[in-house]
């Protein structure tokens, strides 16, 4: 316990926790809607796009986050366009856009400074190395995502339950869908710094599926997912710091433990 309190004195631990809690909350809130709509792998696809964007950022020798956010958001709209207008199935559109982006990113990173430490840190995350400016940007943008989800909670709920019925209610389904995907793109761009492109989709999927195992109502599912996510991020930071483990992977494994406990709890009930 003393060790935990002591570790809180380190500025990099404070930054990791602050950033992780906000991005974790975003991932959980969006995750519930994405999982229920069978869109959970869009996080994985957009993370690959993120890798491509990081490659471009490294080639341009600029802060990767500035390149990642607009490019991942653009790619998310490209996925929607492909599945809506070009009659490509949504999962195929995700695969197509993510593969092209990741390949382009790797080529650019190689043309620039090669497959170096910087790119690897984005592959596996480096929450401990996050800068104060990145924390500031992450908190502000995460707040924007959280407020958006809260404002359009009822619309997102209605669409997740039955898209066609939501249209009959007069809900602008296409616009809300775009908003959901753009929020996901923003969250993925920010989350890459925490768990990396390889594992960001797990931060979207795990808290949601754990919550869905035991929730007794939709609001409860959202609240539980946020609790799971924030707890896993906080525990992950402390455990990885104490045991000198990679933080991103530790967060994912803690989420897996939460999922197994929720699954067993449901079976026992």
């Amino acid at each position: 316990m003393t060790y935990l309190v002591e570790s809180l004195h380190y500025p990099f631990v404070q930054r990791a926790l602050l950033c992780g809690v906000f991005i974790g909350a975003c991932c959980a809130l969006l995750g519930v809607f994405l999982v229920l709509r069978r869109l959970s792998l869009i996080g994985d696809g957009l993370a690959h796009v993120g890798l491509g964007a990081v490659g471009l950022g490294l080639l341009l020798n600029t802060q990767p986050l500035w390149v990642t956010i607009p490019l991942v958001m653009f790619a998310s709209l490209w996925i929607i366009w492909l599945s809506d207008k070009a009659d490509v199935y949504a999962d195929a559109a995700i695969g197509l856009v993510s593969a092209v982006s990741a390949a382009a990113g790797i080529v650019m990173a190689s043309a620039g400074r090669g497959f170096n430490v910087d790119l690897t840190s984005f592959l596996f995350g480096s929450i401990i190395a996050i800068s104060p400016a990145e924390v500031f940007l992450s908190v502000i943008l995460s707040l924007a995502v959280i407020i958006t989800v809260c404002l359009f909670y009822n619309e997102l709920f209605a669409i997740a339950f039955e898209e066609e019925y939501a249209r009959v209610l007069g809900i602008p389904v296409d616009k809300i869908n775009k908003l959901l995907i753009l929020c996901t793109a923003l969250t993925v761009s920010l989350g890459i710094r925490i768990v990396g492109t390889m594992l960001i989709s797990s931060l979207i999927i795990f808290p949601a599926v754990s919550a869905l195992q035991i929730a007794r109502g939709f609001r409860w599912a959202m609240i539980l997912a946020v609790i799971y996510s924030i707890t896993s991020v906080a525990l992950g930071v402390f455990v990885s710091f104490a045991l000198n483990l990679p933080t991103g992977a530790t967060i994912v494994l803690i989420n897996f433990v939460f999922f197994v406990s929720a699954f067993l709890y449901r079976r026992i009930q």
């Binding site: 009822n154 939501a166 209610l169 869905l212």
Partner: peptide
Amino acid sequence: VSRNLHKGFPATVKEIVASGLLSTKSIPRR
């Protein structure tokens, strides 16, 4: 609606019925 369409969806009956009120609301619908 087919029987298994909403399998695993965590909403309560009250939440589903309340969603029918959204047509009477303007954005953002509360």
